[in-house]
């Protein structure tokens, strides 16, 4: 089977990729291709020009920088994230999210860069990255830029990526993860090979005595056109005691932030119900992982 691609350019280096994009402004970047090739075949992108960055091995892998920042190369595959030691030690819930994508084969080809550049609300790693206040590093003809993930999403399928820019890394600063415990719950119709009906990522930082919520962050996939944070809920329980009332308040408050819609996949009411239930469960689990004690 052949793809209806007009022209394919294979970049040998990051800078070559940028100049190829400059020379061919109509070209799209292809990383693992697990979104792009599907669109080419479906006709939406038939006849397009592609710049392949798949060969840029420098953009693969996870490293821990001296200041404690975790740097994830944009081309790192879901499988590599899910089984990476650094990830599993400091942010295992990102590993959970990466491990929940599609099936083993898709996890081998799909990249975390693609999962954030596609601007898709159901992207499984996106909500966890949002809940971690990740920073996205991009490089274009004018050099590098760093974009906090909360500013990254413009609208459905559109992100803050300028022409000629390639996303190079995803950074998780130390203060974003140190002392936090979290988890990701993907709600889908099947246990594998499925797109999230709703994804919920929570992480929490408890007081030293484990009795108070010092900080909590919750992000959803499919609660709106792009991944979103439930900031009202977060604010409502910060500083509160770890107890069932806090849990109820948290799950009630997320309703102020989320805005799921009815589609043929699920109704707004059902998604809303799920999101409140998942808020409760994911927070409970995050607290448990933090060693928290319910009063």
């Amino acid at each position: 089977m052949k793809y209806d691609i007009k022209k394919l350019y294979e970049a040998g280096s990051l800078d070559e990729a940028i100049s190829l994009l400059e020379e061919h402004p109509e070209a799209k970047i292809i990383a693992g291709g697990s979104d792009i090739l599907i669109s080419v075949r479906a006709g939406e992108l038939a006849g397009c020009t592609l710049v392949s960055i798949y060969g840029l091995d420098d953009l693969r892998g996870v490293t821990l920088e001296t200041d404690g920042t975790i740097r994830i190369g944009s081309l790192t595959s879901f499988s590599n994230i899910a089984r990476n030691e650094i990830i599993n030690k400091y942010i295992p819930y990102l590993g959970e999210a990466a491990g929940s994508v599609g099936g083993p084969q898709v996890r081998n080809i799909g990249t975390i860069g693609g999962n954030t550049c596609n601007g898709v609300t159901s992207a499984d790693t996106a909500s966890t990255l949002l809940a971690l206040d990740a920073i996205l590093e991009v490089k274009g003809k004018d050099g590098y830029r760093s974009i906090p993930i909360k500013d990254w999403y413009i609208k459905s399928k559109l992100v803050d990526l300028k022409p000629t820019e390639v996303q190079t890394s995803i950074l998780i600063p130390k203060e974003s993860y140190e002392g936090y415990f979290g988890n990701y719950y993907k709600y889908s119709m099947r246990h594998a090979m499925d797109i999230a009906t709703c994804g919920c990522s929570v992480n929490v930082k408890l007081s030293a005595d484990k009795k108070t919520v010092e900080d909590v962050r919750i992000a959803y996939g499919v609660a709106g056109p792009v991944p979103l944070r439930a900031t009202t809920a977060e604010a409502a329980v910060k500083g509160r005691a770890v107890d069932l009332d806090m849990l109820e308040l948290f799950s009630e408050k997320v309703k102020d932030d989320i805005n799921p819609r009815t589609s043929w996949r699920a109704s707004k009411e059902f998604r809303t119900h799920l999101m409140t239930e998942l808020a409760r469960r994911c927070l409970t689990e995050s607290i448990r992982r933090s060693g928290g004690i319910f009063q």
């Binding site: 089977m1 793809y3 394919l8 294979e10 292809i30 291709g33 697990s34 090739l37 599907i38 075949r41 392949s52 798949y54 060969g55 499988s79 599609g102 099936g103 083993p104 084969q105 898709v106 081998n108 080809i109 090979m193």
Partner: peptide
């Protein structure tokens, strides 16, 4: 489109769906 796995082959020992893998890679 990478959904069924019938085209699975091993690339450097790992399973991939060969239908959504560009041959040039």
């Amino acid at each position: 489109v990478g959904e069924c796995g019938a085209c699975t082959v091993l690339i450097d020992g790992e399973p991939f769906d060969s239908c959504i893998y560009l041959a040039v890679w």
